[in-house]
Amino acid sequence: MHMHKYEKWWLTFGVGSLVLFLVIVGFSAFHYGSHPPSAKVYIDPERVDEIAPFNNPGVHKVEGKDWDYEVVFVASAFYYNPPEIEVPLDAKVKFIATTKDVVHGFQVAGTNINMMLEPGYVSEFVTTVDKSGEYLILCNEYCGIGHSTMTSMLKVVE
């Protein structure tokens, strides 16, 4: 098929930009490990409270791991347990969460911590909390009548 000269330029530029985007996100994901939350850990949604680590929600200091703290959350309509957490500034934190009933969201407003919680699956995300402040944790996936009252709080303290 014949194309106008400018159309070839445009397609080269356009496709080139798309390739650039893919290289940037692909490289930061597969080289630097900046993956979107994609854990493959399974759990019986009806026995969440009995199974570690969800039998003990909260902030736990850990040793000998790639991260300093593990933050464990259990979501259910329309609560997060714990309702508030505190972690020190610049700590490397692994967020571990699951749901006991329907699908919920787990979003820390103003950060990249944003993952879906689905019954039967554990969601995980590791990040270094490098800005102090109080961050609202909220459910961003429709879960029922109390959806917009489902909150918790992340405090990053110096």
Partner: peptide, 9 residues
Amino acid sequence: TLYSVGFVG
């Protein structure tokens, strides 16, 4: 057209 698509890009 070239300028227009250039702007879009």
